[in-house]
Design a protein around this nucleic acid. Sequence first.
DNA 1: CTTAACTACTTAAGCGGTTAAGCTGAGTAT
DNA 2: ATACTCAGCTTAACCGCTTAAGTAGTTAAG
Lengths: 340, 340
Amino acid sequence: MNSKVTLKDVADYVGVSTATVSYVLNGKQQSISDETKEAILSAVKELGYYPNMNAKELASNRSQLIGVVVPQTEGDNKSVFANSFYGEILGSIEREARQQGYQVVISCADLDDNYIRIAYERNLSGIIAIGVYQDGILSKLSETKIPVVLIDSYCKTKDFDNVRIDDEQGSYLATSYLIRNGHRRIGFLCGHIQENGVMQKRFQGYRKALEKAGINLNPQWVFERKVSFEEGRLAAAYIAKALPEMTGLVCTADVMAIGLMKGLHTYRVTVPEDLSIIGFDDLEIANYLEPGLTTVHQAIAEKGAKAFDSLLNEIRGNSRQQDIVLPVSIIERESVKELK
Amino acid sequence: MNSKVTLKDVADYVGVSTATVSYVLNGKQQSISDETKEAILSAVKELGYYPNMNAKELASNRSQLIGVVVPQTEGDNKSVFANSFYGEILGSIEREARQQGYQVVISCADLDDNYIRIAYERNLSGIIAIGVYQDGILSKLSETKIPVVLIDSYCKTKDFDNVRIDDEQGSYLATSYLIRNGHRRIGFLCGHIQENGVMQKRFQGYRKALEKAGINLNPQWVFERKVSFEEGRLAAAYIAKALPEMTGLVCTADVMAIGLMKGLHTYRVTVPEDLSIIGFDDLEIANYLEPGLTTVHQAIAEKGAKAFDSLLNEIRGNSRQQDIVLPVSIIERESVKELK
DNA sequence: CTTAACTACTTAAGCGGTTAAGCTGAGTAT
DNA sequence: ATACTCAGCTTAACCGCTTAAGTAGTTAAG
């Protein structure tokens, strides 16, 4: 670990050229005698040589760096990583990347021109972007030819792989679950539908499930707010007013459902007696609430892992434009009551 | 954004040497006429030139990359980023870094030799490491001369800045709060004390507060477990047995307190009627539970921000070996009952 | 005995920047 | 007229590595 042992130092030490050392270290096609190989390898150990990645990447025009971009804010001013959903995705991407010898550079500042500049400057070999809903930036990204995989994105631009869950199905299952439990007057608490493709799909699922059961959708019972604990809590004021007529509610995010449950307490409405609630995401915390939150499960960590797999494929020049859809399922806990 | 516009391209376009362009772009001391400056700047725009960071860092031997290292696992097999405590710190570091033109490379694999290698290879200009309790690796890091700032670390090695809260004081406050509320038979649920400096300090605080109030510490009521929701839940079995004698409990992590509350439900013990609980960290979720979790607040995001500030100072060659201690305070919610 | 085909290397030209040192010509001092 | 200064550049070495192309020595084939 002595400062600055270079390839040249190793080469001199062994008495060969830097090219030979480079070939040995990178296992290229060149034929090198076993003696020389061993001599080089042990010199590397002895001298404590480590490659200079900048030089390596500059010379080879490849890089072992990938970027992960998350939205700047979701709901409030906190970093989105404070939301364990993003944290878990990030963690699983990093784990996969590390195993493959890649490092992860993060940015919590949305996918914007600034980020594209960085990706470009750093010669990132790939980008994973979470929750992008604007086509504009994607077409710019497309020009850079950097491999990109999106997570939970709904865009017209179809140049990229996309890993997501079946959002519509999730919402459909959630709504149907309430219906199966005897509910017919079911509300919907969600993020802003216009700006957010995920919310659009989930709204579709809700709509279709109602339709199939012959229930009219009541627009008064669709509550759009930002996605956060606090906004969920604040929604309680409006939702309480819809009671007792409304008996069930589909929430498109566990965080909103959790905030809501807290907020409802103020209005003395208890879950699930006065209102059945079903969440979405199955965050770890959902299992530790009282009552436990019945919710739509998605394999969060798997999303990250799958995204990295796809990215690696693209980096290696394989496949393109896949839409990878992970399954969802209902996790039954205690926040939904069966209506007789 | 056309592929590979280099400094040379800009220089040729304007009709000057690459040196001149470099001087203009980096604002160095060299005197350059305004005309030339403007010509270069507009050529940069026109051609869509972006520097190649690898080349830049190679030539200048500086880098705009910092590393953030978190422990591999805490409690269970999930990525620690799923714990919003770490997520929030990471987010705040990234925000600060971005504003200063730095990028953040993450690693969730503990601070180990492998990471030091990466730091070295990548020429990281600094490292922020969270929750390091082993001196061995720190002395190795010390040799590399890379600026390092630790967060929540308690190590003998005093070569580095350390940002933390007053853990002992936090625990002391928490315990005193229970005492002030009439509790005298107070338990302690914590992480493994031996392996974890933070837990040691918090245990001290608990001990001292009891001592000051003339209360004997009952070792039976000290529950050591891993720090996670699930381990908190599992602890309920043992803690329930200590009731009704024990009336209050200090938890050294909100996640444990939350898991515990869930677990206690199974044993039909209610909080705070049957047991008063005070947490530690003031995670966002603490405010959205029912009952709201009374807890020791720490400014999590600020920890990250302060750590980056310190790091930047060191990178710039200023100050060394500061111990930055952020304040703690009690947030009163509803999980503690006043005993008559 | 040539020639071809290997093996086991070396040479050297980059990759895209930085930066110390040098050069040039106009302006000023002597 | 001569020397000095200094603004405004240029030159070129270098950062540490990759890699196409070349070379020498051996062995096998014709």
